[in-house]
């Protein structure tokens, strides 16, 4: 490149240091807005799954019902794990804004571990249901249950892989505008999944417990 790094920076992607790190490069605000809009589409995706679940919730075809299946301790542990991971994820962004690389990486690792714990509990919950004969093929209700909760679980698993990839980049390049943007965005994703889970907790599990 003919230009020195400094010149290039000044001329195009103005690094306006009066702004938060993740908004300093030209593409920071674009990516963050784009990701918010993506979250809105993902919201509709889950809305369709919730709608399907609610319509065929009672179509159990003589098989197990939600009341038979769901047990408070299991899904409460999952909820607490995910709520806590959402908290630790927000701490990661907090530490990033304090330019504390070690703590940022630390909180990201804690978040990933809590996420893995969540997925683990969810898998064991699914395995237990399948063992009891409550498989996806048994009834429309169970198809909808496994698909809705499983789609959320798949999102969380993807988030874990994504976060690990970002941890690696933070270790390598430190806290700089690109990484700041990535950490902020993966944080948004993670909190969004927490919101979706709260609705799974309320609409799927609590409905089962209350009815």
């Amino acid at each position: 490149m003919a230009l020195s790094n400094n010149e290039a920076k000044q001329r195009s992607s103005k690094h306006d240091t009066s702004r938060l790190l993740e908004y300093q490069r030209h593409d920071g605000p674009l990516n963050i807005l784009g990701f918010w809009i993506f979250l809105a589409t993902d919201l509709i995706l889950f809305a369709c799954l919730f709608a399907t679940y609610l319509v065929i919730r009672t179509h159990v075809d003589g098989g197990p019902t939600d009341k038979d299946l769901f047990e408070i301790p299991g899904f409460t542990i999952e909820t607490l794990l995910l709520l806590t991971s959402s908290f630790t994820g927000s701490l990661a962004v907090y530490e990033m804004r304090n330019f504390n690389k070690k703590r940022l990486i630390g909180w990201l690792i804690v978040t990933v571990l809590l996420g893995i714990g969540f997925v683990g509990f969810e898998i064991s919950e699914f395995v237990q249901y399948v063992g009891d004969g409550a498989t996806m093929q048994r009834s429309a209700f169970l198809s909808a249950f496994f698909t809705l909760v499983g789609t959320h679980g798949a999102h969380v698993s993807l988030g874990i892989i994504w976060m690990i990839s970002i941890i690696r980049q933070v270790v390598k390049f430190g806290i700089e505008p690109i990484n700041a943007r990535k950490v902020f965005i993966v944080g948004l994703y993670w909190h969004f999944l927490d919101i979706v889970w709260i609705f799974i907790f309320s609409v799927v599990y609590m409905t089962g417990v209350v009815s």
Partner: peptide, 19 residues
């Protein structure tokens, strides 16, 4: 649950930040 959305948005997701 709706209140929980508000908590996540305003306490964790920096909802009011924008460029």
């Amino acid at each position: 649950a709706v209140l929980q959305i508000a908590v996540q948005l305003f306490f964790f997701m920096h909802f009011m930040e924008s460029d």
